[in-house]
Write a protein that binds this DNA or RNA. Structure first.
Lengths: 349, 349
DNA sequence: GGAATTTACGTTAGCGCTAACGTTAGCGCT
DNA sequence: AGCGCTAACGTTAGCGCTAACGTAAATTCC
């Protein structure tokens, strides 16, 4: 391949600006970066000249020479789930405000994809890296640790994170919901969600749920494990399977998320099963969808925006070597809905 | 700031691998990149050695020296809308298969944010750039044009794109829906969507819709313009405004998207308004949500996955200077639902 | 069997920029 | 005048890597 200069159409380099301004390239570099050591007059002149010459700085060369970049890599399992798009959006804004550029990818819950992404990302020498969840391949952890790049795990709370961690305690969230449901008198819970290996956080919540029910001598059964995509259709399909697989349906059914719970509601509606009279339905996350339903799903609200905000602050603090803590655990909140018993009694006179 | 080497913890450089292997750095470079000119035996030896030394190549240095990077920048207005997350996901996968790394950002439908992003992106000298929609600031266009970076506009079909374009004809989509609705006998349509400046594509669809109705002597009125977020709640709120603002409700109401239409359905249900008997409800996009509803929304299905796939192929072709066309227009499909008249007659005997 | 290739390397010269450390002029102070 | 000090520059030496062009040996070809 012919070697053409990297700057498009042989565009202006810093040296061209320097020549035009009659100063050294260092003065131009300082002026354009806003670094002190240039008189105001010269600075403005250089900036105007650079614009005139349509000079576009090369982040490639700049980062290489400066030995650091302003990139922050963020990986999330999927964008399908509104949870991650909300967290991501908050973080991205926070990073931008601090002058960092976010580079982003999805991993489809596959640790090997995450591993490949981390490897590619490290090659760009980012200022920081954000991973979702706390289940990563050993090699991912090793690479990150050795790289000495500030790393933050978000969404789950980890006891011993790679570096930093901001998240919720999924076991506790499941446990709290379990207590709430047993408090309402439910005794035969079912669960519809993903396979354990697929989504470790979901499994932790299920474990918490089981634990709470176990204290009342109840087991969560059946636990139906679905293949992705775990959204509306998955919930509807799961409910179909549940109802067709048993003569003795549960008194409450918990789902991976609100979307699945909604799909299940539709299936129940079609079959003439009355919610919550015949069965309770419980989601997770407290998504937007819920706020427009005429019969709201009982769910657990997760502090997604707050999580993104806190995570960004913490990572930035670490990058500037000012971090005071390593982990932040955020609380979740049970949101009573109209798909479990209690409120039903209140609203039907 | 002290100047530490960029490679983390003074990690191995290509020279270290070369020294260990007893070859020149060029041989290492060739071996690791899979470029020919290295014997199989030596290649394997070098790769093993690099792994042993935990050598991590610097994309910064590599791209700078090679005068091109494997980055592709993608910007979408929002991730809130499943439309864009689907398109993005397909493209990302396609790019990855061809060895490109996707860098991504959201612009919140703000052209100035897009402009800033393009400027930052160009500084990284990416192999290609993907923008959503065809409404960009003059400066954005100028920068892109001058940069000579292959640029692709996705989602809308443009008559004269900056460079490449893959999308649907939004005016035609609106027009087709208009014809479909007039064919069903609707005469007093309303519309609930965003402000025109906010989302140009939506405005084009509305124009198409108006045009079709105009042919039958009907006007689309009222047109209710909402502020974001234009999702479930927006639809519900819009329907509230519509119903409270008139004594003579429309016979059919079209929405920006399926989510809004769904929110409106909930509002109607709460008010005892029967859909489609009292009013038709029409969405746009054919999202997943629709497939689980017991009464499906009439909508227009957009070929999102196909769009992402075709867009990626076209951009890659252009990058390797093998592009044969500049624009691809994809068809949309009206999806009859149960929220407009026709099917209702079929299903109720 | 000797010239013409081909294969497998090595050497050289940067890519475009910045950290670190000069250098110079100007200023206040004694 | 002579000293220290600072603001405003310039010079030097890379950052870590690759394109392009060597060069020597192995192979091919008529």
């Amino acid at each position: 391949m012919a070697r053409e200069p990297l700057t498009p159409k042989g565009g202006a380099k810093i040296a061209d600006v320097a020549r035009a301004a009659g100063v050294s390239i260092m003065t131009v570099s300082r002026a354009l970066r806003g670094v002190e050591g240039v008189s105001m007059a010269k600075r403005d002149e250089i900036i105007a000249l650079a614009r005139e010459l349509r000079y576009s700085p090369s982040s490639l060369a700049g980062s290489l020479a400066a030995a650091h970049s302003n990139l922050i890599g963020v990986s999330v399992p999927t964008l399908d789930d509104a949870v991650f798009s909300e967290i991501f959006e908050t973080m991205r804004n926070a990073f931008l405000r601090s002058g960092f550029q976010t580079v982003f990818d999805t991993t489809d819950y596959a640790t090997h994809r995450e591993e490949e992404w981390v490897e590619r990302m490290i090659a760009w020498r980012p200022a920081g890296i954000v991973l979702s969840g706390v289940d990563h391949s050993p090699r991912t952890k090793r690479m990150l640790l050795r790289s000495s790049i500030p790393t933050l795990e978000i969404w789950s709370h980890a006891q011993n994170p790679i570096d930093l961690c901001v998240g919720i305690d999924h076991f506790a969230a499941g446990y709290e919901m379990g207590q709430y449901l047993t408090g309402l008198g439910y005794k035969r819970p079912a669960y519809i969600g993903p396979r354990a290996v697929y989504d470790v956080r979901a499994q932790q919540r299920l474990d918490g749920l089981k634990s709470a029910f176990a204290e009342m001598g109840c087991t969560v059964d059946p636990c139906i494990r679905m293949a992705p995509p775990l959204s509306f259709e998955g919930g509807r399909l799961g409910m179909q399977r549940l109802l067709e697989g048993t003569l003795n349906p549960p008194d409450v059914c918990c789902f991976l998320n609100d979307h699945m719970a909604f799909g299940a509601l539709m299936e129940c509606e079609a079959r003439g099963i009355s919610i919550p009279k015949d069965m309770g339905v419980v989601g997770f996350n407290g998504l937007r969808l819920n706020s427009v339903l005429n019969r709201r799903i009982t769910t657990t609200a997760t502090p997604r925006a707050q999580m993104g905000e806190r995570a960004a602050s913490l990572l930035i603090a670490k990058i500037s070597k000012a971090a005071t803590v390593n982990t932040i655990k955020l609380p979740v909140k049970i949101v009573p809905g109209e798909t479990t018993r209690d409120l039903q009694e209140e609203i039907s006179p």
